[in-house]
Design a binder for these strands. Structure first.
Lengths: 219, 219
DNA sequence: ACCTGAACACCGTTCAAGT
DNA sequence: ACCTGAACACCGTTCAAGT
């Protein structure tokens, strides 16, 4: 509502993008707005509220794919547009694990996934679990990319791959040495998404087969 | 090595378990050891080094299953023992996303998974990716459990489920209202693990079929 | 209603000083 | 080598005071 609040969130978002989440300080945000730290409190109940506002902004950036696509394409596109939205503000991704996504925007993307899984023929009882499985993986992947689990910030820190490929205490690494290079994360994400979609398709196929069997034995 | 360092890490671990990661302060750790904050620096190069030490302790807690089990049981047991280890120090889980697991202990559990995937017949080129997929999911699941994405700290904050089940803007939620209750996270984790293992088995089955086809068309 | 400035109880870390 | 105490440059937030 208040345009002053939007101004504050804009400033906080800029700081997070430029200097990381640690630099998002009441004082720093205030100074970028051109005001004292205390002047933020009428518009933001405290730091936690400020961060909640940033999460809302972050989730507002995920575009929902065209509902007329087939369910596999819908999930694939949602995965990509979700990842892109988080990449736009990588410093904020850790915030997504702190609280349940109970805002309307968060529930709407969950609803979109629910609908895709319904259309896929997944049994209802499995759908909330599979929605959590998919989004948990997506958030985990992006935070791993952006917070340093996959790629270390410093360039030299990835020697461990070649070292591990020669370490006698890591026999399987040695066996896979030829294949341990750092991959394209775009490609890896796409392949993971395909595997998860295949998993969902398998689930619904198994269900359909079971239903058919039941029908046959009934008939 | 230094037993003073171990003493410091013990104190930090206790504070993290009792009061959370935010309470792990150089001053608080020092005072629990019975010493000034500055007295920590000869044994710990700074706060980052202290947190690295805690991560090492955390990962030391994941037990590797018996290597003689079949690959599916090995993955299943490793998933459970990994989750249990993280549950012992939930406050530390966010630290796992910050840096690549390049310590020996971390690489040894990766090696264990590599071996299971090799035994499953997964093509080598897919193995590092699938290892990351599995561990990314596991870490994402546990951090979601323990940091509040799945379960809110305050009891009353889970009303959104029943509210969402009635919200006209969330048609799929309405359709699934009967099934939106908070699940048993133990059961959900087990089901997710089974699905992922099934996905791996499917991958290797596809590969084997392709190889057989190639062999047939060659012969 | 909105903002300021001083203050409080904290941080991590440096530095000179002690033993 | 190990530890102390004062200090520095920060935090988030409260509170009294201004307009």
């Amino acid at each position: 509502m208040s345009e002053r609040r939007d101004q504050i969130l804009d400033a906080a978002l800029d700081i997070a993008d430029e200097e990381g989440l640690g630099a998002v300080t009441m004082r720093a945000v205030a100074s970028r707005v051109g005001v004292t730290a205390m002047a933020l409190y009428p518009h933001v109940s405290g730091k936690e509220d400020l961060l909640d506002g940033l999460v809302t902004r972050l989730l507002a950036g995920v575009a929902l794919p065209d509902a007329s696509l087939c369910w596999t394409d819908r999930l694939r596109e949602l995965g990509c547009s979700g990842r892109e939205a988080l990449h736009r503000h990588p410093a904020l991704v850790p915030l997504l694990f702190a609280k349940p996504g109970s805002t309307l925007a968060a529930r709407q993307t969950a609803d979109f996934i629910y609908q895709a899984l319904l259309d896929a023929g997944v049994p209802a009882a499995q759908i909330p679990r599979l929605e959590r499985l998919i989004t948990t993986f997506l958030l985990g992947f992006v935070i791993s990319e952006t917070s340093g689990r996959f790629v270390a910030g410093t360039a030299g820190a990835q020697d461990w791959r070649t070292a591990a490929g020669r370490d006698t205490r890591l026999p399987a690494h040695r066996q896979l040495a030829a294949v341990l290079a750092e991959p394209s994360w775009d490609d890896e994400f796409a392949a993971d998404l395909d595997d998860l979609i295949g998993m969902v398709a398998g689930r619904s196929a198994a269900e359909n087969a079971a239903a058919e069997n039941a029908a046959v034995s009934r008939g």
